[in-house]
Protein backbone atom coordinates (compact mmCIF):
# COMPACT_ATOMS: atom_id res chain seq x y z
CA UNK A 1 0.00 0.00 0.00
CA UNK A 2 1.62 3.24 -1.10
CA UNK A 3 1.55 6.47 0.79
CA UNK A 4 -1.58 8.60 0.59
CA UNK A 5 -0.79 12.20 -0.40
CA UNK A 6 -3.91 14.06 -1.43
CA UNK A 7 -7.27 13.51 0.14
CA UNK A 8 -10.70 14.91 -0.73
CA UNK A 9 -13.00 14.69 2.27
CA UNK A 10 -16.64 15.33 1.40
CA UNK A 11 -15.62 18.27 -0.75
CA UNK A 12 -18.42 20.41 -2.17
CA UNK A 13 -17.99 23.52 -4.27
CA UNK A 14 -20.67 26.12 -4.95
CA UNK A 15 -20.14 28.96 -7.36
CA UNK A 16 -22.09 32.15 -7.39
CA UNK A 17 -23.22 32.66 -10.97
CA UNK A 18 -25.43 35.68 -11.63
CA UNK A 19 -26.53 35.69 -7.99
CA UNK A 20 -27.53 32.06 -8.22
CA UNK A 21 -25.86 29.31 -6.31
CA UNK A 22 -24.47 26.75 -8.70
CA UNK A 23 -23.24 23.50 -7.22
CA UNK A 24 -20.27 22.36 -9.29
CA UNK A 25 -18.87 19.61 -7.10
CA UNK A 26 -21.01 17.55 -4.80
CA UNK A 27 -19.66 15.68 -1.81
CA UNK A 28 -16.59 14.16 -3.41
CA UNK A 29 -14.25 11.95 -1.44
CA UNK A 30 -11.23 10.17 -2.83
CA UNK A 31 -7.52 10.04 -2.33
CA UNK A 32 -4.42 10.06 -4.44
CA UNK A 33 -1.43 7.98 -3.42
CA UNK A 34 2.20 8.67 -4.13
CA UNK A 35 3.20 7.85 -7.70
CA UNK A 36 -0.30 7.27 -8.99
CA UNK A 37 -1.42 8.50 -12.38
CA UNK A 38 -5.07 9.39 -12.02
CA UNK A 39 -7.33 10.46 -14.84
CA UNK A 40 -10.60 12.20 -14.26
CA UNK A 41 -13.07 11.52 -17.03
CA UNK A 42 -16.46 13.12 -17.42
CA UNK A 43 -18.61 15.26 -19.67
CA UNK A 44 -17.34 18.75 -20.43
CA UNK A 45 -18.74 21.44 -18.19
CA UNK A 46 -19.21 19.03 -15.30
CA UNK A 47 -16.63 20.50 -12.93
CA UNK A 48 -13.54 18.44 -13.70
CA UNK A 49 -11.40 21.53 -14.01
CA UNK A 50 -12.64 22.73 -10.63
CA UNK A 51 -11.36 19.48 -9.11
CA UNK A 52 -7.93 20.25 -10.51
CA UNK A 53 -8.14 23.87 -9.42
CA UNK A 54 -8.75 22.74 -5.87
CA UNK A 55 -5.55 20.68 -5.83
CA UNK A 56 -3.67 23.47 -7.59
CA UNK A 57 -4.84 25.81 -4.85
CA UNK A 58 -6.93 28.21 -6.91
CA UNK A 59 -10.30 27.12 -5.51
CA UNK A 60 -11.25 26.24 -1.96
CA UNK A 61 -14.09 23.80 -1.32
CA UNK A 62 -17.22 25.44 0.08
CA UNK A 63 -17.79 22.43 2.34
CA UNK A 64 -15.51 19.61 3.37
CA UNK A 65 -11.75 19.79 2.90
CA UNK A 66 -8.92 18.80 0.65
CA UNK A 67 -5.57 17.99 2.20
CA UNK A 68 -2.06 17.38 1.01
CA UNK A 69 -0.05 15.23 3.42
CA UNK A 70 -2.74 15.93 6.00
CA UNK A 71 -2.51 19.72 5.69
CA UNK A 72 -5.32 21.65 4.05
CA UNK A 73 -4.35 23.08 0.65
CA UNK A 74 -4.08 26.81 0.85
CA UNK A 75 -2.96 28.42 -2.40
CA UNK A 76 -0.70 27.32 -5.24
CA UNK A 77 2.83 26.06 -4.73
CA UNK A 78 5.88 25.10 -6.72
CA UNK A 79 5.36 21.58 -5.47
CA UNK A 80 2.28 21.20 -7.67
CA UNK A 81 3.06 21.91 -11.31
CA UNK A 82 0.07 22.71 -13.47
CA UNK A 83 -0.32 22.40 -17.21
CA UNK A 84 -3.32 24.39 -18.31
CA UNK A 85 -5.55 23.71 -21.25
CA UNK A 86 -4.42 26.96 -22.88
CA UNK A 87 -0.76 26.34 -21.87
CA UNK A 88 -0.08 29.94 -20.77
CA UNK A 89 3.34 30.05 -22.40
CA UNK A 90 4.86 33.47 -21.63
CA UNK A 91 4.97 35.21 -25.01
CA UNK A 92 7.49 37.85 -23.90
CA UNK A 93 10.13 35.26 -22.97
CA UNK A 94 12.18 33.03 -25.23
CA UNK A 95 11.70 29.28 -25.02
CA UNK A 96 14.73 28.99 -22.75
CA UNK A 97 13.62 31.85 -20.48
CA UNK A 98 10.18 30.25 -20.21
CA UNK A 99 11.76 27.09 -18.84
CA UNK A 100 14.05 29.08 -16.52
CA UNK A 101 11.17 31.19 -15.16
CA UNK A 102 10.28 28.91 -12.26
CA UNK A 103 13.90 28.11 -11.46
CA UNK A 104 14.88 31.76 -11.09
CA UNK A 105 12.07 32.70 -8.71
CA UNK A 106 12.84 33.46 -5.08
CA UNK A 107 10.95 30.36 -3.94
CA UNK A 108 13.07 28.09 -6.10
CA UNK A 109 15.15 25.62 -4.16
CA UNK A 110 17.37 24.76 -7.10
CA UNK A 111 20.90 26.21 -6.77
CA UNK A 112 21.80 28.75 -9.42
CA UNK A 113 24.64 26.80 -10.97
CA UNK A 114 22.26 24.00 -11.91
CA UNK A 115 19.71 26.15 -13.79
CA UNK A 116 21.40 26.00 -17.17
CA UNK A 117 21.95 22.27 -16.91
CA UNK A 118 18.29 21.58 -16.04
CA UNK A 119 17.12 23.88 -18.77
CA UNK A 120 19.26 22.20 -21.45
CA UNK A 121 18.11 18.82 -20.30
CA UNK A 122 14.45 19.64 -20.85
CA UNK A 123 15.13 21.48 -24.08
CA UNK A 124 16.81 18.29 -25.24
CA UNK A 125 14.14 15.95 -23.90
CA UNK A 126 11.27 17.93 -25.40
CA UNK A 127 12.98 18.42 -28.74
CA UNK A 128 13.16 22.18 -28.33
CA UNK A 129 16.94 22.61 -28.32
CA UNK A 130 16.97 24.27 -31.75
CA UNK A 131 14.43 26.81 -30.59
CA UNK A 132 15.90 27.82 -27.24
CA UNK A 133 16.28 31.45 -28.28
CA UNK A 134 13.03 31.72 -30.25
CA UNK A 135 9.97 33.53 -29.05
CA UNK A 136 6.89 31.32 -28.54
CA UNK A 137 4.98 32.94 -31.40
CA UNK A 138 7.14 30.94 -33.80
CA UNK A 139 6.25 27.58 -32.20
CA UNK A 140 3.65 25.09 -33.38
CA UNK A 141 0.87 23.79 -31.10
CA UNK A 142 2.77 20.61 -30.26
CA UNK A 143 5.91 22.57 -29.44
CA UNK A 144 4.01 24.93 -27.15
CA UNK A 145 2.61 21.90 -25.39
CA UNK A 146 6.07 20.45 -24.91
CA UNK A 147 7.33 23.79 -23.68
CA UNK A 148 4.51 23.91 -21.12
CA UNK A 149 5.52 20.46 -19.89
CA UNK A 150 9.22 21.37 -19.85
CA UNK A 151 8.47 24.53 -17.84
CA UNK A 152 6.33 22.62 -15.34
CA UNK A 153 8.96 19.89 -15.02
CA UNK A 154 11.93 22.20 -14.60
CA UNK A 155 11.06 23.12 -11.02
CA UNK A 156 10.75 19.41 -10.25
CA UNK A 157 7.28 19.38 -8.65
CA UNK A 158 6.11 16.21 -6.94
CA UNK A 159 2.69 16.59 -8.50
CA UNK A 160 1.74 17.27 -12.06
CA UNK A 161 -1.78 18.50 -12.70
CA UNK A 162 -2.89 18.58 -16.31
CA UNK A 163 -6.11 19.96 -17.69
CA UNK A 164 -6.92 18.60 -21.14
CA UNK A 165 -3.28 19.09 -22.09
CA UNK A 166 -3.55 17.43 -25.47
CA UNK A 167 -7.02 18.64 -26.38
CA UNK A 168 -5.86 21.17 -28.95
CA UNK A 169 -3.49 18.84 -30.78
CA UNK A 170 -4.09 16.76 -33.89
CA UNK A 171 -4.36 12.99 -33.48
CA UNK A 172 -0.75 12.18 -34.46
CA UNK A 173 0.81 14.86 -32.29
CA UNK A 174 -1.45 13.84 -29.48
CA UNK A 175 -0.32 10.20 -29.65
CA UNK A 176 3.31 11.32 -29.73
CA UNK A 177 2.84 13.62 -26.76
CA UNK A 178 1.21 10.83 -24.76
CA UNK A 179 4.20 8.58 -25.39
CA UNK A 180 6.59 11.37 -24.54
CA UNK A 181 4.77 11.97 -21.28
CA UNK A 182 4.95 8.28 -20.36
CA UNK A 183 8.61 8.24 -21.24
CA UNK A 184 9.44 11.29 -19.15
CA UNK A 185 7.45 9.89 -16.23
CA UNK A 186 9.46 6.71 -16.54
CA UNK A 187 12.60 8.75 -15.74
CA UNK A 188 11.09 10.92 -13.06
CA UNK A 189 8.22 9.35 -11.22
CA UNK A 190 5.60 11.89 -10.27
CA UNK A 191 2.07 11.81 -8.98
CA UNK A 192 -0.15 12.87 -11.83
CA UNK A 193 -3.72 14.07 -12.16
CA UNK A 194 -4.99 14.30 -15.70
CA UNK A 195 -8.31 15.81 -16.71
CA UNK A 196 -9.49 14.52 -20.02
CA UNK A 197 -12.58 13.56 -21.90
CA UNK A 198 -10.77 11.08 -24.06
CA UNK A 199 -11.50 7.60 -22.72
CA UNK A 200 -8.69 6.17 -24.81
CA UNK A 201 -6.16 8.63 -23.43
CA UNK A 202 -7.26 7.96 -19.85
CA UNK A 203 -6.77 4.19 -20.17
CA UNK A 204 -3.50 4.46 -22.05
CA UNK A 205 -1.86 6.80 -19.57
CA UNK A 206 -3.28 6.25 -16.14
CA UNK A 207 -3.15 3.73 -13.34
CA UNK A 208 -6.56 4.70 -12.05
CA UNK A 209 -9.56 6.37 -13.68
CA UNK A 210 -12.22 8.33 -11.85
CA UNK A 211 -15.44 8.74 -13.79
CA UNK A 212 -17.43 11.74 -12.64
CA UNK A 213 -21.11 12.47 -13.24
CA UNK A 214 -22.77 15.38 -14.96
CA UNK A 215 -22.84 18.64 -12.94
CA UNK A 216 -22.68 18.76 -10.03
CA UNK A 217 -19.77 16.35 -10.29
CA UNK A 218 -19.99 13.26 -8.08
CA UNK A 219 -17.82 10.19 -8.33
CA UNK A 220 -19.60 7.65 -10.46
CA UNK A 221 -16.98 4.97 -10.56
CA UNK A 222 -13.33 4.36 -9.85
CA UNK A 223 -11.60 1.98 -12.21
CA UNK A 224 -8.13 0.50 -11.80
CA UNK A 225 -6.29 0.15 -15.07
CA UNK A 226 -4.68 -3.31 -15.12
CA UNK A 227 -1.74 -2.61 -17.45
CA UNK A 228 1.76 -2.34 -15.94
CA UNK A 229 4.21 0.44 -16.90
CA UNK A 230 6.13 0.95 -19.15
CA UNK A 231 3.35 0.84 -21.70
CA UNK A 232 3.52 0.91 -25.43
CA UNK A 233 1.12 1.71 -28.24
CA UNK A 234 0.39 -2.01 -28.70
CA UNK A 235 -1.79 -2.17 -25.60
CA UNK A 236 -4.42 -0.35 -27.64
CA UNK A 237 -5.07 -3.71 -29.34
CA UNK A 238 -5.26 -5.72 -26.16
CA UNK A 239 -8.77 -7.25 -25.75
CA UNK A 240 -8.78 -6.07 -22.16
CA UNK A 241 -8.07 -2.52 -23.32
CA UNK A 242 -10.90 -2.71 -25.84
CA UNK A 243 -13.48 -4.03 -23.39
CA UNK A 244 -12.43 -1.50 -20.75
CA UNK A 245 -12.73 1.22 -23.32
CA UNK A 246 -16.25 0.29 -24.35
CA UNK A 247 -17.37 -0.01 -20.73
CA UNK A 248 -15.89 3.36 -19.90
CA UNK A 249 -17.39 4.94 -22.98
CA UNK A 250 -20.87 3.77 -22.00
CA UNK A 251 -20.44 5.28 -18.56
CA UNK A 252 -19.23 8.59 -19.96
CA UNK A 253 -21.88 8.77 -22.69
CA UNK A 254 -24.66 8.44 -20.17
CA UNK A 255 -23.25 11.32 -18.16
CA UNK A 256 -22.64 13.28 -21.30
CA UNK A 257 -26.33 13.06 -22.17
CA UNK A 258 -27.30 14.03 -18.65
CA UNK A 259 -24.98 17.02 -18.87
CA UNK A 260 -26.55 18.03 -22.19
CA UNK A 261 -29.94 18.15 -20.50
CA UNK A 262 -28.60 20.38 -17.73
CA UNK A 263 -26.91 22.70 -20.18
CA UNK A 264 -30.02 23.04 -22.28
CA UNK A 265 -32.19 24.27 -19.47
Amino acid sequence: MSLERIRFEKATVNFNVNNQLLRVIDDISFSISDGEFISIVGPSGCGKTTLMNIIAGFVKPTLGKVTLDGIEINGPSQNRGVIFQEYGIFPWLTVEKNILFGLTLRNSKVPKDRHQQICSRYLQLMGLADFSNSYPRTLSGGMRQRLAIARAYATNPEFLLMDEPFGALDAQTRAKMQDLLLEVLQHERKTVLLITHSVDEAIYLSSKIIVVTARPAKIKEVIDVPFPYPRSESIHDDPQFISLKSRLRDLVMKEYEAQQKISNI
Binding site: F58, P76, S77
Partner: peptide, 12 residues
Protein backbone atom coordinates in the same frame (compact mmCIF):
# COMPACT_ATOMS: atom_id res chain seq x y z
CA UNK B 1 -3.71 32.53 -17.26
CA UNK B 2 -0.18 34.01 -17.10
CA UNK B 3 -0.69 35.02 -13.49
CA UNK B 4 -2.05 31.58 -12.64
CA UNK B 5 0.92 29.90 -14.31
CA UNK B 6 3.36 32.16 -12.47
CA UNK B 7 1.62 31.31 -9.19
CA UNK B 8 1.95 27.57 -9.77
CA UNK B 9 5.64 28.03 -10.59
CA UNK B 10 6.02 29.60 -7.16
CA UNK B 11 6.07 33.33 -7.92
CA UNK B 12 5.45 35.78 -5.10
Amino acid sequence: IYIKVAHTLGAT
